[in-house]
Structure formats: structure tokens, C-alpha cells
Design a protein around this nucleic acid. Structure first.
Lengths: 204, 204, 204, 204
DNA sequence: GATGAATGAGAATTCATTCAT
DNA sequence: TATGAATGAATTCTCATTCAT
């Protein structure tokens, strides 16, 4: 019985979160209202607030879930491969696949970034998950180094640089697709990373 | 007379824009008010609205001005050097110098990014100036290729990748500085770029 | 069977009324909710509304019950004595004893007074019971007059004056105890009343 | 100029306070809205909030002003007389005159009393001014004692008892006028007080 | 009997914008 | 030019009440 209810409740929450995501994607972080979410979710304002105490609550849970999507896509795709190079490429591709499959995701993510300096809860979640994502890249590089596939590099900082590169590529492309061909830029990014990781004489 | 007035008017506008920048840096894009700007600028609400018809107007002019700052910093710093490699490194450093000198700049910039999908004016300005910045990088790479310093690469897409990498590095560092040492990450980024541009056999 | 149910129902109602009293004492008349009552009573919102049709219903029954407490305390304490003077003093003390024993009672009572002008049901109950209380005092004075203990006075109006005096003393003391020593003020009030009832020459 | 504005502003504030008083008198403390005040004052909601930051602010200022009215009425009326007895009687009458002239005043006052336990600002104001009023009575009694008019009594506590008696008389009468003739009760109260202050043998 | 999900009617506030001065 | 009083639309959040389970 309780399980039944908990299940149903969870379903409702996800439904609301999805509606929030859709609405923010459509109207932007600043101008959407709880009523928008309610309408999209097929509930009343009160109904939405029944599941999430405040608007901020909705947002915080949504952010967490969005990062999970990225995280999971990365893990799922990189797990398929054995070699560090293939794993790393799979990770980079994962970002782009997400951007293509969920056109609004990076849009909404940037909406959240803009809240970081003024909202500690958002800041915490972002910090936590950004670190997780970078660690995933770093671990892959480390395993490549261990296996002799990659040069011994400062894997931590390389990871930050790599994630930054590919994430911003995805973001800018989301913002104005006519700017560039994302597949080309992705290939280029991979080449650059690999040139560094596999090359003989390090320059830094 | 008219010139006198025009001058004074321009001064007022800049004063208001600076106030707007300060206020957004402090309170974030969503929660600042015209009164905040007025207070910061030492004017009344009506006074501010006298120089900019609407709140959006202020924002749009501000965004333009902010990109100019980045653009100018880049150009000024890269002009000092002759070799493409040094020029390129100077450009990358320019982003970081800006992030260090104006801690709020990327914060506010991301605030604006979040408006792109919902505000055509913001989108246009961003598209225009992002292209200018990327072109600056591309031109530098092209000149390096012409001079035989760099490998013949797809300079356009490399430029996108490079700008993305360094800009996101600056942004994430602005958001939480404890995440990494920006100088290390910058060095790493440079190495990666140079490894690609100067290396012999391409891998992708 | 029906009796059984009626008994159980009555118990539930009292339980809810007690919870309501506690909650109003804590949060004040304006800001308590049915859910507060439900939580305090260990029931759900729906459960509370099952026994009292509306929020107002709860309030009205509660007011009635509260006055009963005062009434009963007065009667119980005055019954112990024979002489009118002792009876009267016992009544005055009864108000103070109630204030001391149930610190919230006068607080909640004033909350209700504030509803009198806008709520006819509250007005009726208050009028009815205030009269009963004043009558108790009046009867005592009358008996004192009959027995030659007291001067022949306008017992009705004396009763109003006396009840007003002691009740407001109890109220103000409940609101801010540091204002005065309630026992001293009570003694003073008694002296004043007795000076009037027992004195030789009337002055007004 | 500034004076002009300050004057105009003060006038507006008083106008809003008056509207608030009228509205509370009509609808009660719990159910009036800012819009009600705005309508009564011939302003918009925003207009009201322009002069008082919050609803609570309005209320707090209103309470202060209401007590002032009572205070001033008392002082003005008691100043007319020389003898302590006449002064004291004038004070008691002042309460009743206020109740008669401003039928809503005690109604609204009780509304405020009900806020005391939950609103520190209200509590402070009430404490401060209740003390001032009681002190006025006490000072009068003291002067009567000094002049040999009154017996040497504990003037402080007598004052509390006297104020409580007359104030509650005014309040109950405001709530239901059919309960008693306020003039009779007032006369009775005076007799009682004087019987105590002027009588030969003290009993407490 | 009892629950608590869902509703929807407000309420207080906030703020861009207008406009008389 | 510049002010700031005034507006009113929009928004978040609260809660009594209803009702299916």
C-alpha cells in the first residue's frame, strides 16, 4: 500500500519535473511560472506545490536530474569500450548525443549556471556533479596512462580542459546551430585531445 | 551645444551601464531591478528610464559592451606578438586575464547566454560577437599555417574548439575557484592546442 | 452500539478541540491551519473535517468549552464558602487561578473577542456566557445585601465593573507578566470592591 | 520643497492609516486586505505599499496612533481639573468618551491585543503605551495622596486595577451595547474607586 | 471512518513603466 | 532633464474544502 503510494508519488514528481523542464526550455528560466508547469503537467498550481514545497525546490531537483542524464549517458556509452582512447571518444560523443537528442538540455543547464552565484543550493549541486563528470574523464585518462596507451600527463587538468571544450561546443551549438557543424567540431576536438595524449614529446 | 549635450548624454549612459553591470554581478540577472541600477548610478528610476527606454534596452547595450571588452583585450594582447604561436597563446591568456581582472564578467555573460533562446536581440548580439572572437582565433591559426608554423588544419573548427575550451575553463573557474588552478588548466589547454597544431601525423 | 459510537465520537471531538486550543495558543488565531490541528491531534486533515464540518465550527465549539472552564472554576470555588464576601473573593481568585493554570486561556479568549464584531456566532456565545459569569457575581452580591453583609448597591452594574476589572487584570498579566505582580493587583482589586460594598457613606 | 513633499507624504500616510482603521473596524483584523485599504484610501495596492513597506508596517503604525488617541484624550481631559478626584474621574470618563466617539477603537484595539503573543512589535508598542496610560492614573493618585485628598495607597497597583476595570467596561460595551448602560457602569466604577481612595479604614 | 491528493480562490508583494511636476 | 508617486499586472504561496479511495 505504502509502496503503491510512494510509487505513484514518485511518478507524479517526475511528471512535474518533466513539465518544468519543458516549460523552462520553452520560456527560459526567468519567465516561467508555476502555473505554466501546472498546465503542462495537467495539474493545478496547488497540485504542483503539493509535491514540491516551493518553486526553488522544483528547480533544484530538476537540475540534479538533468546532470544525472548527462552522467548516465556518459557512463553507459563509455562502458561499451575497453581501450582508453575509445572510451574517451565515447565520452565526448556522449555530450554531443545528449545535445542532439535533448535540444533543450544545455539551454536549461546554462539557465542554471546563471543561478550559481546567487543560489547556494544550485552551486552545490553543480559543483558536485561537474566534479563527477570530470572525474569520469580523468579516470579514463588515468587508465590509458596505466596501460601505456597515453603519455603520462596531468590527467586532472586535462580532464577539466577536455570537458570544458566539449561542453561549450555543445552549448554554443545549441544556442545557434548555424554557427558550425557540431560533428566536425567534435572530430576536431577529439583530434586535439588525442594529439596531446598520444604524442611523443610533451610541450608543457 | 548639441555636441556638449551628446557628450554628457553618452557619459550618463555609460554610467548607467556600469551600474547595471555592477548590480547584475551582485544580484544576478533575475533579481535586479531598475531601482537597483538607479541607486548604484546615483539617479532616480525615472532618470535611468530617461536614457534607456526599457529595462531590456539597458541589458542589450550592456551585453554589447561586455563583449567589446573581451574582444579588445584579445586584440590588444595578441597584437603584441609576431609569431602565430605566441599570438594564439596571448589570446588564450586574454580570456583568463579578463576572468581574473573582472570576476563578474563571465558570471554576467552566462546570465546573458541564458537569455539567448528567449530573446532574439540577445541572440543576435551574442552570435555576432562570438563569431568575431572565433574569427580572431581562426585568423591567427591561418597566418600560422601560411607561415609554416602550424600544420594545415581546419582552422575554422579548431577555432571553435579552442575558444570553447578556454571560455568554459574561465567560466567554471569563475563559478567555483576551488575546483581547479586556472593557470594550470590554461597551460594544459595551450599544450593540447599546440600539440595538435604543431604535430606531424594527424590522428582523427 | 450507537452509544458506543457516540462515545467514541465525543472523545474524538474533545481530542480535536484540545488540539485546536493548543495550536491557537501557540500560533495565534490568525495563522493556525486545520493541518496544524490534525497534526497535533494525530489525525489527518480529512479526519478533522469529518468531525467538524468547517474550521469555524471547531472554533465555535472551542470558545464555548473555554468559557465553561472559567464558569466551572468560578462556581466550584465560590461554592465552598458561605459568606458573600468570601464567595466574592473566591470568584475573583478563580479568574487569576485560571490565568495561572492555563496561561493560554486568556490569550485565546482575546483571539475570540476579536472575532465578535465580524462573527455573529462568536458574538452570541460570548454574550451568553459573559452574562452568566456576571450573573454569578451579581447573585453573590445580592445575597450579601440580603444578609446585611453589603450595602444596598446596584448589584448588576457593580458586577459588570468587578468582572471587567479582574478579567482585564488577568489578560494584561497574561500578555506581559513583567508589568505587574498579579497577586498584588488582585488583592488591590478586592480591597477596592470591598471598600465599596461594605462602606458606610456612598460618594457617587 | 522637501518640506512640501514631507508634508504631502505625511498626509498620505495618515490617509492610509485612517483607511486601514476603517477597514479593520469593518472587516476585522483577520480578513481585511491591502486592497481593501487601497480602495478605501482611493489608491491602488501599489500606492499603499509605496508608503508602507508591508502590511505589518501599516498595522504597527496604526496601533501606535490609536494608543496616542487614547493617551491624548486622557491628558487633555484630566488637565482641565485641579483636584485629584476630578482629574481621576476625568480620566475614567475619557475612556468612555473615546469608546462612544470612536465606536471601532476598542474593537480594533482588541484585534491588536490578539496579536501580542505572536508579534513582538505589537507586544512592544502595547507594553510601552499601556504603561504610559497606567502611569497617568498613578501620577494622579500620587498627587491626590500628597495633597491629603486620598488615603496613602499602593498607587501603582491601584492604577492597574482602575485602568483594567474601565477599559474592559468600554470594551465589553463596544462588543454588545445591549449588555449594560455604560454610563451607569462608569458611575459605579468611579464610586468604587473613590470609596477606596477616600475611605477612612483601609482593608488591604 | 480516515486519508491525503487535488483544487482554486485569494493574499501579499514586486516592479516595469507612465506621467505630472 | 530629472524625480518619484502611482499604477496594475504578474507571481508565489497558503489553505479550506472536496472527494475518490
Amino acid at each position: 500500500m505504502t509502496t503503491r503510494n510512494a510509487e505513484k508519488e514518485e511518478k507524479r514528481r517526475l511528471q512535474i519535473l518533466q513539465a518544468a523542464y519543458d516549460v523552462i526550455a520553452q520560456k527560459g528560466y526567468n519567465s516561467f511560472t508555476i502555473e505554466d508547469i501546472a498546465n503542462k503537467a495537467g495539474l493545478s498550481k496547488g497540485g504542483v506545490l503539493h509535491y514540491f514545497k516551493t518553486k526553488e525546490d522544483i528547480l533544484v531537483y530538476l537540475l540534479e536530474q538533468m546532470y544525472r542524464v548527462i552522467e548516465e549517458t556518459i557512463k553507459k556509452r563509455s562502458q561499451k569500450y575497453r581501450s582508453a582512447e575509445k572510451k574517451l571518444k565515447a565520452i565526448l560523443i556522449a555530450f554531443i548525443v545528449t545535445a542532439k537528442g535533448q535540444p533543450a538540455l544545455y539551454t536549461v543547464l546554462v539557465d542554471f549556471w546563471a543561478q550559481i552565484p546567487v543560489n547556494p543550493r544550485v552551486q552545490n549541486i553543480h559543483a558536485k556533479i561537474y566534479r563527477i563528470i570530470c572525474d569520469e574523464v580523468r579516470t579514463t585518462i588515468d587508465s590509458g596512462i596505466r596501460d601505456g596507451e597515453f603519455q603520462p600527463v596531468d590527467s586532472q587538468n586535462v580532464a577539466y580542459a577536455v570537458v570544458g571544450m566539449i561542453m561549450n561546443a555543445a552549448i554554443q551549438w545549441t544556442f545557434h546551430r548555424e554557427l558550425y557543424n557540431i560533428d566536425h567540431v567534435t572530430k576536431m576536438s577529439m583530434s586535439m585531445v588525442m594529439a596531446y595524449l598520444k604524442k611523443r614529446g610533451t610541450s608543457a
